[in-house]
């Protein structure tokens, strides 16, 4: 009698039966996978939002160029027009000393008498230059520099030093997080492998008998791989649900505690990333089962 579709039915039934008969060990296995994938998901959400934040800064780069007090008005306007024609520049806004002073007074209402006494030219006039969309902010700023002659401008501020420091921080988080993620995955693989090994060990007599009555290696191994797949799938789905719940609960609580509207911009991971996490969970489940059953068969009589 040759092996046919019935063999797959038997394998499937064996896997289902084992899942039911070793329900506690299987739950441990699923739980470990869920915890590992949830940790990965939390880290990735953090990393994703940091990257999004940095990208938004890169998308909306503003350069403030402060005039010397003695630059005449018509010169300021011609400079604004010339800079505005540059293809790297999206728009230019001229802010006079009076407008800058009014802007400051509006924000520090309590100091209005002091500011009035100091005069309307407390703050220098400036050009607020918004850069066009670019794939290289550093290059565009450098290329714009010749237009911002120190003879006209006392200071040019584009806030890039701070952004660069933040980028370095994000990179460090990425490297550290990647290393930690790898360690979490290896630890999860180790734990799940040993849990599946216990399931296999519980059934060692049955496996020995299967071998003696002519079961092929693939017939013996396949149900465990199916179980690993089920562990991974269930663990992955549980992790994604927990990630969603964490996102909703934590963001809601932080918002009400801090009243920070900015937190509403903390995004959940995109669908492709979530799918990737689910695939990772399944790979973890099947991989652990594969390692466990190979280890068992290598030592079995």
């Amino acid at each position: 009698m040759s092996q046919g579709p019935q063999t797959y039915v038997h394998i499937f039934r064996r896997a289902l039966r084992s899942l039911w008969e070793n329900v506690y060990l299987n739950l441990v296995s699923m739980g470990v996978i869920a915890a590992a994938v949830l940790l990965m998901g939390v880290y990735l959400t953090f990393q994703y939002n940091l990257t999004q934040l940095m990208n938004s800064w890169d998308r909306d780069v503003q350069v403030s160029a402060y005039f010397h007090a003695d630059v005449p008005e018509d010169r300021r306007e011609s400079l604004a027009a010339r800079i505005g024609e540059d293809p790297r520049v999206a728009r230019v806004a001229y802010v006079s000393e009076a407008e800058a002073g009014a802007w400051l007074a509006e924000r520090v209402d309590d100091l209005a008498p002091v500011l009035e006494e100091l005069g309307s030219d407390l703050l220098p006039a400036s050009l607020e230059i918004t850069l066009a969309q670019t794939d290289n902010v550093e290059r565009d700023i450098a290329e714009l520099k010749p237009l911002l002659d120190p003879a006209d401008f006392a200071e040019v501020d584009h806030g890039r030093e701070w952004v660069d420091r933040f980028e370095a921080f994000v990179e460090a988080v990425r490297v550290l997080g990647g290393a930690m993620g790898l360690m979490i995955l290896v630890a999860a693989l180790f734990l799940v492998t040993n849990t599946v090994y216990l399931v296999i060990y519980n059934r060692r007599d049955e496996l020995e008998i299967q071998k003696l009555v002519g079961a092929t290696q693939s017939y013996i191994v396949a149900p465990f791989l199916l179980e690993g797949f089920a562990h991974g799938l269930a663990g992955g789905v549980a992790a994604l649900l927990a990630l969603k719940a964490l996102h909703v609960l934590l963001i809601g609580r932080l918002e009400s505690a801090l009243g920070a509207e900015a937190l509403t911009s903390v995004s959940a991971l995109p669908a492709q990333w979530l799918l990737g996490l689910a695939v990772l969970a399944v790979v973890l489940g099947v991989g652990a089962a594969s390692v466990a059953v190979t280890r068992f068969l290598a030592t079995a009589p």
Binding site: M1, S2, G4, Q6, I209, V213, G214
Partner: peptide, 19 residues
């Protein structure tokens, strides 16, 4: 196999060949 019925124990040899 103590957790399998007599029928399942006997049928094991046929199960592995896909009967």
């Amino acid at each position: 196999i103590p957790t399998r019925s007599i029928g399942e124990n006997v049928g094991l040899a046929l199960e592995v060949i896909g009967a």
